[in-house]
């Protein structure tokens, strides 16, 4: 591998590539900034995706996994579609999120907790449960924000758009077996 020539430590780079379908394209990044320029939440990111890629190249594991950028990804796929090198940027953001959670490096817990609350319902019922999510997540995370959001939830219920009871699929045990197997295959 010619990339491993020199004294640069590529362990982190290789780890990121390994964990991302099509991730090999990352090494061809031109640093053109199309991703950062296209990103709807780019202004809120501490590092643009382009910068993260260079930081990955430089082996800055700690700084990358502490970045808020992956958590601000709205998965609009603009970056990935426009990238002149066809780097799967959205998928890389998912990879960085997974690595950050496992390394327990991302400080702000809102975003990871939203994901885990969501997943919790999926793994219990096989379906997502909006009412449950809204109450559980918001009560623990932003009780103050509920002041504004509360009446909206109420209106959704009134308009018959938020069932109050979760629906459980019949094959929930089968689904759990599948998910558990998948996780153990990935070594999680």
């Amino acid at each position: 591998m010619s990339r491993s020539l020199g004294n640069k430590d590529d362990a982190f780079l290789n780890e990121v590539i390994e964990a991302t379908p099509g991730g090999e394209a990352l090494v061809t990044c031109l640093q053109c900034g199309t991703c950062g320029g296209s990103c709807p939440s780019g202004p809120d990111m501490d590092h643009t995706p382009r910068q993260l890629f260079q930081m990955i190249n430089a082996g800055m594991r700690q700084e990358v996994l502490q970045s808020n950028a992956p958590w601000y990804c709205v998965t609009c796929y603009y970056c990935m579609t426009r990238c002149p090198k066809q780097i799967p940027i959205t998928d890389l953001m998912y990879t960085l999120k997974r690595m950050a959670v496992r390394a327990k490096l991302y400080d702000d817990s809102d975003a990871p907790d939203w994901s885990s609350s969501f997943i919790g319902f999926v793994e219990s019922y096989g379906r997502s449960f909006e009412f449950g999510l809204a109450t559980r997540y918001h009560l623990t995370h932003s009780p103050l924000r509920k002041v504004g959001v509360g009446p909206m939830g109420l209106e959704m219920i009134v308009k018959d758009r938020m069932p109050l009871r979760p629906e459980r699929i019949k094959g929930i045990d089968q689904l759990r077996t599948i998910l558990d197997t998948a996780k153990s295959l990935e070594g999680v």
Binding site: A19, T75, Y94, T95, K97, R98, V101, P112, W114, S115, S116, F118, I119, V122, G126, R127, S128, I169, K170, G171, L175, L179, A182, K183, L185, E186, V188
Partner: peptide, 18 residues
């Protein structure tokens, strides 16, 4: 029949293969 949630944008953030 008996479909389940697609995972939205969340599941991928924690587990890939799953």
């Amino acid at each position: 029949e008996d479909w389940n949630c697609c995972g939205a944008t969340e599941y991928m953030s924690l587990n890939k293969t799953a």
